[in-house]
Design a protein around this nucleic acid. Structure first.
Lengths: 241, 241
DNA sequence: ACTTGCCCTGCCCCAAGGGCAGGGTTGAAC
DNA sequence: GTTCAACCCTGCCCTTGGGGCAGGGCAAGT
């Protein structure tokens, strides 16, 4: 008959763990020897190994306790569920690992294939790396929260910047302009015209939804400069929103 | 600017979780609106997504907080460590799943290949299923706790039962015999003789070690019948231990 | 007789939130 | 005008699976 410390070493578990299992009714308290020490037999070791197998699989101790009084049928069913749960958790961890690697590579999350070239274009056209990174994160947010509308919004945006004249205006003027520079009015007019051309008289996708995310993003972009804030207001007014 | 509930829904997390991240300094407290509600921007959402990616990878929140003030070098290094840790955890879970399936199949743990046929032989020779199961669990214990000596002990034991005469004695007599049946003496003599033959005058592997596990197992077996208890004592005496 | 290494119980502590109480806000419906 | 549901706020206690410590009792070698 071995002591609690020996049992703990054999099974690879702490003494405290065994005592907890006694307290919670997972493993019955064994008889004590003359000096009050717990004395264990081989059957206790076997029971403890079984308990650990389940506990390491993530089964709550209370559930393990209940399984002690389950029929064989219930027990097998429980084991099947635990197995499936384990499979799901392994899959989840692998997905997490994938996201982690995206994070390590500087990407917040994978984006649709068409966004990558657009971001590279931005860099090539002279937007600052800081700005490109912000754009990437914002698009992550849009694709994560509004997968249905994100693609349309993205094509709209990238189509706009595909026009070299508009692009040049963005690049040259908007960023470090005074808020009352008259060229902002010109820029706003050109953008409203281009937008009207794209959508005709129909509704404008950015403005019809009550969703907050596009507004949130516009706010973040606006926060970078008073000039952009005024530009946004002018465009909004020009489109009659 | 969105509220805490909207942010929580977008990122797929509970409101409480966000508040906890504020309390622990993971995510800075945003400004409040006129009625004291927290108001979040897109950058908060981006930061929260990053935090969740790490938290789901099992990184403690305190560590995530510290990473906020790490250099890029440290950050990349930390991500590599987390990735490796994740790989290890996935491997561990797969191993656990394997052990779980052994458990579902009625085995406590995988045993060396040679043990399986031996257990099947036991069943074929007429030992009760209950007894065979006990034997399997006991061997699991021996192989788990004394991998170095388990194989020798096992070959010794299985060799003994390979002798049909000895086997028959075990089977017919020992189990439901009175403790003072004279045939036990005969049986003990035959076993000591066979053991001496096997090992000559050298040391006997079962008895030399101070390890408790073999004694534990012998005790468990003895507990099943007074006759076996006496048989064990006779063998011990006969071998001069 | 001392020391070292076990063992005992009872207590408080941790992370990562969950849940509830008690109270204020907002917006829409009646 | 009020009432209702759906939000938000803070503060507090609860949970799981143990870890760790205090304060004390055995065991065994030297």
């Amino acid at each position: 008959m071995i002591t609690i410390g020996q049992l703990a070493r054999y099974v690879g578990v702490s003494i405290k763990t065994i005592r907890v299992y006694h307290d919670k009714g997972l493993l019955p308290e064994p008889d004590r020897d003359a000096s009050g020490y717990r004395r264990y037999g081989a059957n206790d070791a076997i029971a403890l190994i079984k308990i650990r197998t389940l506990a390491e699989a993530g089964v709550p101790l209370a559930r393990i306790r209940d399984l002690r009084s389950a029929t064989d049928e219930e027990y097998q069913q429980a084991l099947r569920e635990i197995d499936q749960d384990l499979t799901a958790r392994i899959r989840g961890l692998r997905a997490t690992q994938g996201r982690l690697r995206q994070l390590a590579a500087g990407h917040l999350a994978p984006l649709p294939a068409e966004v990558g070239p657009y971001l590279e274009d931005l860099a090539r056209w002279g937007f600052t790396p800081r700005w490109v990174d912000l754009q990437r994160d914002l698009w992550v947010l849009v694709f994560a929260t509004h997968p249905d509308r994100a693609t349309a919004l993205f094509r709209d945006q990238s189509g706009m910047l595909a026009d070299p004249a508009l692009r040049q205006l963005f690049l040259d003027h908007a960023h470090d302009l005074d808020a009352d520079d008259p060229r902002i009015d010109t820029l706003a007019r050109r953008i409203t015209e281009a937008t009207r051309q794209r959508y005709g008289a129909g509704e404008l996708p950015q403005l019809d939804a009550e969703s907050e995310i596009p507004a949130l993003i516009q706010g973040t972009v606006n926060a970078s400069s008073p000039a952009w804030r005024r530009l946004d207001a002018l465009i909004r007014a020009g489109l009659g929103a």
